[in-house]
Simulated scan of single mutants.
Amino acid sequence: MFFGVSHIVIPVTQLERAVGLWRDVAGFTEAKRGEGYVDIDSGNMLLRLLAVPEVEANVSLRLSVGDVAQTYQALLAAGAQSRYAPMKTPELEEIACVSDADGHSIVLWRTLTEDEWGFVPELPKEQGLWQPEAEALLKRLLLHVPALFRMLARRKSTRVIEMIAAEEKSPVTREIVIRGYITSSAKATRFRLIAPLRAEGINPDDYKADFDYE
């Protein structure tokens, strides 16, 4: 039976140089030393730095970091070579890559929020006809939701709005968007919708029934 990956073996030609990179620059902990190797605790897996006369095959490591640009510069200052500078990807990530002295690639990455990426995803529409002004209104209202929760709010509000439109046998109008936006939110937190609605020139008092909807 398999219990998981315990080590990744990284062949290195100068053991102490590699230890300095992973322990002193990357900030990981030296866990164990043995004859010709040092184990580095990366937090969820051990990196076994194994001394070899010559590296015959390179490895690639993907490291989650808090600040890609800062970590990238720190590795360059420590002697790593750039493969590519920090950049954004369509997967909502920021990544960069360097090579260590033995040619192993170290990919630095972190997840970006929608706001950091700077785009507004399309609504996950599945049915019905959406009037352009209604769709634009919902996208603006969703910008008031914290980025961490926006994807969930986008899915739920779109689904509820389309359900209301289907029940009323109507295209998705501005009015239906407002009602669905309110009722798709938990009743205990609907007070947070008042400011976004007012910012769009909408009087929340006109939608008391929706705010009270169970």
Rank of each mutant, 00 (worst) to 15 (best):
R62C: 03
P121A: 06
I182T: 03
L21R: 00
A77K: 14
Q131D: 08
A153V: 15
E126F: 11
V55D: 13
L138F: 07
S60Y: 09
Q73C: 06
E168Y: 08
E214R: 01
F28K: 04
S184L: 11
S6L: 13
E56S: 08
V68K: 03
I182M: 06
G66M: 08
V107T: 14
E30G: 08
I8D: 06
P124F: 12
A96L: 07
I164P: 00
L148C: 00
L148F: 04
G103E: 12
A136Y: 05
L193K: 09
L197F: 04
V55I: 10
I8H: 01
M151I: 03
A77Y: 14
V5C: 12
E175M: 01
D205L: 02
R192I: 04
P196L: 03
S82N: 07
M45S: 03
A69H: 02
L142P: 07
A74P: 07
K139M: 15
E126W: 10
L112D: 01
A199R: 02
G4M: 04
Y207G: 00
R62Y: 12
K187N: 04
S42W: 05
R179Y: 03
P196G: 01
E122M: 13
E54P: 07
K125Q: 11
T189G: 04
S42D: 10
V55L: 06
A77I: 10
S60F: 13
W117S: 15
E91A: 13
I106Y: 14
F119M: 09
T158L: 07
P196W: 03
I40L: 12
L75R: 08
V68H: 07
S185M: 09
D210C: 02
R179D: 06
H104P: 08
F119W: 09
A195D: 10
D212S: 09
G20M: 02
L92N: 00
I40K: 03
N44S: 15
